[in-house]
Design a binder for these strands. Structure first.
Lengths: 199, 199
DNA sequence: TGATTTTTGTACGATCCCGCACAAAAATCG
DNA sequence: CGATTTTTGTGCGGGATCGTACAAAAATCA
């Protein structure tokens, strides 16, 4: 069951037994499900198959691991938006892809729909922790900025404002998914938002 | 500095030294700032001025105290919406009151803007804890339902859909407030949402 | 083969945290 | 005043959690 994709041992010493990316993915999944404060290092060690000392040696402490996970998600979101921008969909198709893609992602999860890690776990820590708050702000900036570009491409009259509303709806879809709202209702909200934005 | 509003001792034994409501408010504030998992009972005891055994005797365990706080917020939100419904504002004024009232509430906080406790701390626990998930769902239902009534009163064509979008924007305003977004930008988003909904 | 380097994994210490036991305190009832 | 009832507050015990020390293991270099 271990994910031992021992790539590029290269150096001198004993080769690493685990794949850094796979471990990061597993840790990220635990954080997304349980939240930052509620995820212990024992659970992270169990989920990644890496014991604590190796986790510390590879990622630093708990917060560094969490921030590395956020950064990884940030990069994935970025390339996803870039791809959506590249295909040059017509406005309605673009919004459909945007919202439905988000919804399907949010409904993913180990124990149930887990939404967006930034919106729904980083936000809990954001007031007390400046680093996490900054990461959350970066995340929202990334999303707002990309959707603004998409709105420009779609030729709407107020790309910035339209993007902020579309982005806001996506935030809420994430929270609603975590609250257990069924897919059909999330899709209905997405359709309504699409109609309003294209009116 | 204690809030000793010893009301209605009534019974037989030693009178209670603290005001239940004041203690609940203080605990709620800590939960809202730090999140559920990150708030210890020592901090709750310090913030409320009540030591742990008395907290347990009065509210039960940590989760029961948190849920009592959510219920209190739920009740306040309910009466706030009822009041807004009663004044029969014209549509634009109603939306302005709705959004700006939310924003001002979200910008409140001990250490900084703390948003909505349900959207931003309950959501983190919602996947792992069914009780908190249910409370979060109730909360969203309350808000969606009231805004739907307000939209009916305002005479919009699709009260349910419009309400879900308005409610979604409010969720996002809460998260954005926690991320540190300045008031002016939150207000701009609210204005844009108002314009879209009344178009 | 022996030295060096890096990772592994056990084990540990210090701290925090939850929830409660128990005696003292402060009120009312008879 | 003595008995009863309820709250207070100290204090504790078991357990979780974080981060690290240290020796063994597994590789490369000379």
């Amino acid at each position: 069951m271990r994910n031992d994709t021992k790539i590029a041992p290269r150096g001198r010493g004993r080769p690493r037994k685990f794949d850094r990316e796979a471990a990061l993915r597993a840790a990220l999944q635990r954080f997304r499900t349980l939240g930052y404060a509620n995820t212990s290092l024992d659970e992270l060690a169990a989920a990644t198959g890496v014991n604590r000392p190796s986790l510390y040696a590879t990622f630093g402490d708990k917060k560094a691991l969490y921030l590395a996970g956020l950064a990884r998600t940030h990069a994935i979101i970025d390339s996803t938006f870039a791809a959506l921008h590249d295909v040059h969909y017509p406005p309605e198709k673009m919004l459909k892809a945007l919202f439905l893609g988000a919804i399907e992602g949010f409904l993913t999860g180990e124990y149930g729909p887990s939404g967006c890690i930034a919106v729904n776990t980083a936000a809990a820590e954001a007031v007390a922790d400046a680093d996490i708050r900054a990461a959350l702000a970066d995340f929202m900036q990334l999303q707002d900025g990309w959707i603004e570009k998409l709105m420009e491409q779609a030729g709407t009259a107020d790309p910035r404002g339209d993007a902020q509303i579309a982005s806001s709806v996506i935030h809420s879809l994430s929270t609603r998914a975590r609250a257990g709202t069924p897919r059909a209702e999330l899709i209905a909200i997405a359709k309504k938002a699409t109609a309003l934005l294209l009116a």
